[in-house]
Design a protein around this nucleic acid. Structure first.
Lengths: 351, 351
DNA sequence: TTGAAAGCGCTACCAG
DNA sequence: CTGGTAGCGCTTTCAA
């Protein structure tokens, strides 16, 4: 039941491994680093000894001795479900490339500056920012930085994200396709991503000659914002037949408000969310949603960082823009009275 | 595009500070560590030079040289709002004591073992577990471990949490006080905390002679679980007049389901959540909820860890159990037809 | 009080 | 391909 003591009090070092394998420490180091310069047999032997001894390299010593720390920082502002899904992918991708992740949360009391300082103490090789969406990340220029999910003008910052324009186009296209015209957008408030998404919505509507039906309702990014915005919608004399929300949280919140007012989704109003998160897949919401596969975003993010780090920058574009998809669920249907869509399996629409 | 040199190529080291201050490196080290053995004047001078130079100690070197890393690991399983609020407090408390936090998330693909291994590479001085609620944390016995929010039999693990029994008592007391008798519990599924909470509910009911009105509905911890459980409740011939949910997420989800079925809260049914999270405070839910102030939990957690680390364990109790409070909002009212409670300010009930 | 010196565990560079 | 040998930046004895 109790934790077994690690090999008589002292931890296993590279020297132990080298001695036991009958090679020099340098050799052992080469093998552990997967660096070139060791024969297959030696490599195999060292590896097996290391495993036997339960050797784990000391990242402190490793970082201190080398110019790299093999540490990637991840700064996240909100603990949204979507971020968590992204994290999952980041861990996997980083590990695959032999990197560790250092997480740093940006909480209310903790400014970006403080969070970054804490991160800098670890001597990161690179930084991934899931948020906050600022125009000029503080660590820009110091190490490779990639922001995921939004965009910045900073020439030193890469970005990996999905296209808001394409996503909006998919959403509007779907709705128009089943007969909607009065499609409103419940926006994300005043922030970079929200602006891009709103612009995408307006263009998509205009492109279909629905400029006159365009209407943007001020929203935000959390459930509370969604509730308030939904109430704001209900104040109008004539309701839209469909609403495209900024994200799944606000969409779900709006749905709840509608339900409380006896307005049924999708019979009376169709709702589309954004992120295609687990919340959207929840049976009670069963939300049609625009989404990017987080694992893919994560993979591309790490990939990009590694490329920068290796200097193997084969003509890197500063922005990686992926096409989102639209997952069709039960929250959208043709306008006007009709029965609920069958709760069958989800359908995905790609561009 | 390429890595710009930071501060004229080299970073500021302790030697730089020492040289500039005209003292030995050892002296500078003493000052930076706030260790005894330096005169006031020396200390002041060194500190000022360090600040001028923008010196930041290298935690890698520091950790390597000393037996301590001054790093506290935080393992979290779910990215729930409540955990995030807790994190906020942990950062503040750790910083106050001169410790850094290293976060590690437990995602689907990433078992506790892997997360712990990643953490161990940092040579943590201590570990805080927000989850998962296992009976025997893997790092137990290696470093001080405190689990927050639940309880374990492991004698090497401290725990800081609120009392589920007291919380349930507050909830049941409030409901009974305004006239409810048919009070059901929508439980948290099969996990440690859920069991404790269910037991608390049953005792609280029994204590008031309501044993016959006791009924536990199988639930879970996320919104989906809440939805399903709510539907399960609706299958009964006779509905309860009040429901105490396992947490705010399930409570909110249940409320949504009720609303969709035309059952109004609190007119037809009262609902109490748990965690008193931001979700509960959301106007649309306005949920009466049992809660603990996360900052307090966090503070006690770090405090306890430091005590263990310092060995200043003045007869430490293995468990710190705090009293939760009940925040009264609009989701509870006397049973039977009546109008909605005014949306005034929240009321808090302590024990 | 202060300074010199010995590592912490590892990487990286060197000549064999 | 291999085995010495410097350090990385800091803490920590131990004398002075």
């Amino acid at each position: 039941m109790v934790q077994p003591e690690r090999n008589s009090g002292r931890r296993v070092t590279l020297d132990d491994v080298a001695a036991r394998a009958g090679v020099s420490r340098a050799m052992a180091s080469i093998v552990m680093r997967e660096a070139p310069g060791a024969s297959e047999t030696t490599r195999a032997r060292v590896l097996s000894v290391a495993k036997d001894l339960g050797y784990r390299p000391d990242i402190r010593a490793r970082a201190l001795a080398s110019t790299q720390s093999r540490l990637i920082g991840v700064l996240f502002g909100a603990a949204r479900r979507y971020h968590f899904e992204l994290l999952e992918g980041l861990y996997a991708a980083a590990e695959k490339h032999g990197y560790n992740l250092v997480l740093s949360a940006l909480t209310g009391d903790r400014s970006e500056r403080r969070a970054i300082e804490a991160l800098q103490d670890f001597r990161l090789d690179a930084l991934v920012m899931l948020g906050p969406a600022t125009d000029h990340p503080l660590m820009s220029g110091q190490v490779p930085v990639v922001v995921v999910g939004w965009h910045t003008e900073d020439p030193d910052v890469d970005s990996v994200r999905h296209s808001d324009a394409v996503g909006m186009d998919l959403a509007v296209d779907h709705l128009v396709g089943i007969g909607h015209r009065d499609i409103w957008h419940l926006d994300g408030g005043k922030q970079l991503v929200a602006d891009a998404r709103t612009a995408g919505y307006e263009e998509a509507m205009a492109r279909r000659g629905l400029g006159a039906h365009t209407r943007v309702i001020t929203g935000g990014e959390d459930q509370l914002d969604g509730q308030l915005a939904a109430n704001r919608i209900l104040e109008h004399d004539r309701l839209p037949t469909a609403v495209i929300a900024y994200n799944d949280d606000t969409a779900a919140a709006a749905m709840s408000v509608f339900a409380q007012q006896g307005i049924r989704v999708p019979e009376h109003i169709s709702v589309i969310g954004w992120d295609d998160s687990a919340l959207a897949a929840t049976p009670a919401f069963n939300l049609t949603s625009v989404g990017q596969r987080p694992p893919e975003l994560a993979e591309r993010t790490i990939e990009r960082l590694i490329a920068r780090l290796d200097g193997s920058s084969v003509a890197l574009e500063r922005e990686v823009i992926l096409d989102p998809h639209l997952t069709l669920r039960g929250s959208t249907a043709a306008p006007g009275p009709r029965s609920v869509a069958a709760g069958g399996s989800d359908t995905t629409v790609d561009r």
